[in-house]
Amino acid sequence: MTAPLLDIDDLHVTIPTDRGDLHALRGAGLRLESGKTLCLVGESGCGKSLTAMSLMGLLPRKARQSAGRFALMGTDYAGKAPKAWANLRGRDMAMIFQDPNQSLNPTMTVGVQMTEALRHFEKLSKAQAEDRAIAMLDRVGIADPRSRLGQYPHQFSGGQRQRLMIASALIGRPKLLIADEPTTALDVTIQAQILQVIAELQDELGLGLLLITHDLGVAAAIADDVAVMYAGRVIETGPVAQLFAVPAHPYTQGLMVAIPVPGRTRPGTPLPAISGRVPGLIGGVTGCAFRDRCALAGDGCASDPLPRHAFASGGFVECTRPSLSETRP
């Protein structure tokens, strides 16, 4: 069996604050095969964006990171100098953000921004690099790409800017694309277009895609596998069909029923909401972080380590409830 594209295990990130250490990631793990899409879902503060930041080496400077395994394409970088991992950035890994304005330089033309890295890494000539940029822009659906190369980011609309970001990220032909809420700021019709472009390009280039989203609809539409994060840990993961059909963790179940779905939820009736709120992560948490909000919590939930139940169809759930294996293959 070949090594997975991305294999992260036991990832910890701690951020010192005025009030003590914030344990933002508490042993998160991910596995992503080439050409597949893994959606990382969860609510704000669960650590999903921080996981992406950690992968891209963009953590706040004062943050401390450690990992049991931190591997890309079979090479484990866990114990190695951060520099070795940083070298992968922009070549083997690329990232797109929710707000394209964050990563587009408003004072440089689109063409210069897109070709810079190519000319640096692949030592292409200006003309060669521009040809690649034009092909890429055309591929993401930007009309008349040759003339738009000389324009500045503000001359593009919101949806076009996100296309631009995708083109810039993929022009270096990375193996792994990390997308952090790439469509959250967009209108629904544009969102569908952008997801379409991402999915097509992923197929063509054999990309591994790590997509971070709070929107279960996006995850259902595009994911092969889904990982649900809560309070800095992946609490459940599995193939998209199984996870949505038989969510095993009480938190995942709660999330699924809390959103109105036309045709499924009865309009005007109360939605089953998850009560309470996410625990503070300063000073750390022992046991299951969800137990205070969980109707099924019992004595075993307060102690570490939590039992992890693996499913035959792939994935696992981290929960003390014993009866789960019967409902999901």
Binding site: I15, T17, R19, L22, A24, S44, G45, C46, S49, L50, M53, V278, G280, L281, I282
Partner: peptide, 9 residues
């Protein structure tokens, strides 16, 4: 980023 939600205010 969503750090601030985890840090009690």
């Amino acid at each position: 980023m969503t750090l601030e939600t985890a840090i009690a205010p």
